[in-house]
Design a binder for these strands. Structure first.
Lengths: 341, 341
DNA sequence: CTGTTAGCGCCTTCAA
DNA sequence: TTGAAGGCGCTAACAG
């Protein structure tokens, strides 16, 4: 009964061949005869040796087959977001095909250094909340793919958030509308609050900000002026966070007649609160969302929203990661005409 | 301008100290004076050295701070399941506190050997679809925590699926009911099908099977006989897969008057199809779910179901993983009385 | 408190 | 096709 675990060397000794031969049997089939290879492989199986130690291999080769998926926010929040989940699904489909693995990494972490030596590179889904990660990613010697935001000289995949927001707003609005905007992470506040323009400054590259600008363009074209007391920021796309904005809105003497929401979950939450308060949608208040998640179809009125294929986005990001010369890619979106505007 | 990257040794040379001192500065503060430590750390920062290479560290120490989260099924499916997501959230909360990281691993993978050398152990959420993983996990020299199933001599966390299923069924049923069961992964079929008893045999340890037995016990106590033509298996807890069972049920000459579903998503899907077909719930058909996901509360009639705290389950699993002497733990559940039965 | 040294397990020239 | 040897970058034991 042996208690020590097998190593390349110990196996080589038992089989009376050199370590290189064992290594080659596993890694470079062309370096030895088929017969010998089969022989060795089956002997290894017999001995309970399942191939070279991955940690050692990774040290030696400088690659591991592990890809870090950097989520914009903490994992515990992102994992429950249907849009992020779809994205992860797409990524994992492709990663699986390449026999690679996915390491979940939070965008609120202190530094990518804690994993950089383990992984072959980074797929970054949304601007990381901790902006020092951004700087690290810029100088990172390993592969980096960004999604829905840009880093100098790195390939990215995204949809045209600006244009999409513009289009859905145009669809929803008519001149003389009074418009509320419920933004997602358009400021760095961690609770739901009203937004003043100054606090928007340092998030200009974020998805939310691009959507915000799209809304503004549509409004300006229709001659609608922005009432800055009608702009909220929601820190996370959840029912609870959005509810606060909904209650704020309901608190006003005069309701806005259109609410532009930066995610479907936000829109759904606001929809629910308005309905509970007896407000008619879309007769009194029109609502639009963003993303086109499945759940919108299970509610009435069906939400009007922008559909983007997050799973495909994930697949694309993984493809870019695996490709020799990744090129920045733009994905399609389309307007889903529901009943809420 | 140097092109080569820093190593412990190169830094030691530049600072004229031994490699051990640098290593200690990063890993064992008690091994050198505070002053010297600060001095070294800031010098390293200056030089752009962010600490020992993790891959090398991992090889040397035999641990990496990475935990493999083995999901029962493929990642791309599991990630979109609200119950699994909640679990992952709980795990990640705790893992974060320990500065560890999470590697997602699919239960349909060929072998854990592809990651075993990278990780400190495994948290297994549900019986892996590929049963060879089970055998590997049994002999695995590293730490293994199981969730909702058991492996000899390994700590686990779970809820009493048998008892919970029994209770919800008891709540729903009255004597003389005609009962349909829509099971989740109670066979290994990959499409939604009717179930015959023989195919249940090889999944006796699965969550689904425990729930199945709980239902049967309640039925038998009430003197209800199981009509085996009214048992379905759904391979994944999704609207699409469940829909097929719903349509099968609607196809029958006489509807069952109670449908016991092994997940809320399944129940919701069936609820929706029945309502669309003009069936009154619960007047004509009673429906119960399992899990107690958020979404059930957003539908009418509100689903009657078993609530289990999946996030807490995840936290618990992670705690067990980190604890010195993990002990098998049972989590509470309770019945949520909705309007669907 | 600091320095020296022997591997952790492997891959890859290089020479045979 | 095979074997020997150097080193990937680090840590822990031990000696000073």
């Amino acid at each position: 009964m042996k208690t020590k675990s097998n190593t390349l060397r110990s196996i080589a000794e038992q089989l009376n061949v050199s370590t290189a031969t064992i290594s080659n049997a596993f890694n470079r089939p062309d370096q030895l005869s088929k017969v010998k290879r089969e022989e060795i492989l089956s002997a290894c199986k017999e001995l309970g040796y399942f191939g070279p130690n991955k940690a050692a291999q990774s040290l030696r080769r400088g690659r591991s087959g592990i890809i870090a998926l950097v989520l914009a926010d903490s994992i515990d929040y992102m994992i429950s977001d249907p849009v992020a989940s779809s994205f992860i699904r797409g990524v994992s489909e492709i990663v699986k095909e390449h026999d690679s693995h996915l390491l979940l990494f939070s965008g609120s972490s202190t530094s990518i250094n804690s994993v950089i030596d383990f992984v072959d590179g980074f797929i970054c889904y949304g601007t990381p909340r901790n902006s020092t990660l951004l700087k690290e990613l810029e100088r990172c010697p390993k592969k980096v793919i960004t999604v829905d935001f840009e880093i100098q000289d790195r390939a990215s995949v995204s949809v045209d958030n600006y244009q999409a927001a513009y289009e859905i707003a145009l669809k929803a609005l008519t001149p003389n509308d009074s418009v509320a905007i419920v933004g997602l992470r358009i400021t760095n506040d961690e609770v739901t609050t009203r937004v003043n323009n100054t606090s928007l400054a340092n998030v200009a590259t974020s998805v939310g900000y691009k959507r915000y600008e799209g809304y503004l363009k549509a409004m300006s074209e229709l001659g609608i002026e922005l009432d800055t007391s009608l702009v909220w920021n929601v820190p996370e796309s959840t029912q609870e966070h959005a509810k606060k904005a909904a209650l704020d809105i309901l608190d006003r003497e005069r309701l806005p007649n259109t609410i532009l929401c930066m995610s479907d979950l936000i829109a759904l939450s606001i929809l629910k609160e308005l309905l509970s308060a007896g407000v008619k949608v879309p007769e009194q208040v029109k609502i639009v969302g963003f993303d086109g998640i499945e759940e919108t179809k299970r509610h009435h009125p069906i939400l009007s929203t922008v559909y983007q294929n997050s799973t495909e986005k994930g697949r694309m990001a993984a493809h870019l990661f695996k490709s020799k010369e990744p090129t920045t890619t733009m994905l399609d979106y389309h307007i889903l005409e529901g009943e809420s505007c």
